[in-house]
Amino acid sequence: MTTVTPGFGRTVAHTAPQGSDQRPRRQLVDTKAPAEKAFLGLTRGSALVVLAVIALVGIFLTIKAVPALKVAKFSFLTTQAWQPDIHRFGIAGIMTGTILIALVAVVIAVPVALGLALYITEVAPARIKRTLVSLVDLMAAVPSVVYGLWALLFLQGRVVGVSRWIATWFGWIPLFHVNGADPSNPVQSGTLYSASTFIVGIAVSLMVIPILCSVMRETFSQAPLGEREGAYALGATRWGMIRSVVLPFGKGGIIGGTMLGLGRALGETIVVILIISPVYNANLHILQSGGNSVSGLIANLYSESSAFGTSALMAAGLALFALTLTINFAASAVVARSRSGAESDA
């Protein structure tokens, strides 16, 4: 959206005195004054500092993870246990839990965020639009510990009933199966359905909805006006216009936003340690108590691990780091591509 002059930052110098009859071709010389150089150096320096910090995080995690990875080798990716001190540890179970939590969150968040974003850009009256955008931003700014407390003491007790209902009716789907569930028993304990991946997923979805929503909203609002009016002129209803113009146009935003949300959901810690009952093998039954995430693992075990155990935690952290970084890179690439398309179309 900003245009940049090519000659910006250069000064024009005349090479010949003005008095001569034939004016020589003007030559552009990059003569940077000392102040200019110092300023550029300062900005470049601080960019380097930032890069150094980022690199340091990555390098340090890697160096610290090497001892554990050397011992575990490939089994680090396949073992479902966490006993680093007898060299039985791996992230197969924990990473599965992490991804399940993130998937539950995203599956809940995508329809809500999509509807919310479309409502704000397409449906809402102009006078409340700004307020709604502010509310979405506020949703993103609410500290995760507040969501955590709410999920622990408000949500959990209420979701247990829903979980029980889903498990009763859809228990034949392996994902919703709950071991030990006995639908015919009226005094069946709710504990089976508490502390589960599902509950954490719901709480995390509240944190990722605003992220998804703002990315989607941004791309939706860039949908070209000409095409919108064209659709209306051809007799489309509002939903017809949205389906034929806004959604195809915002596809990049939807996918990119979803991935950004996924990246955020993978790293959530506080809700996980407040609610979930940690297990180290993969629990694929999302309604059943027990689950884990890499961040929860780190938060729970960092203080009671031996030196080698800490190294193993670093390795798990590194795996999470690599996963989120990959997803985020992909997401920004997708979003950036959709943005560049927007400019050419308009």
Binding site: N179, G180, T191, L192, S194, A195, S277, P278, V279, N283, Q288, S289, G290
Partner: peptide
């Protein structure tokens, strides 16, 4: 722990 237990 095994499935069915809660760890806190």
């Amino acid at each position: 722990t095994v499935t069915g237990m809660i760890a806190q």
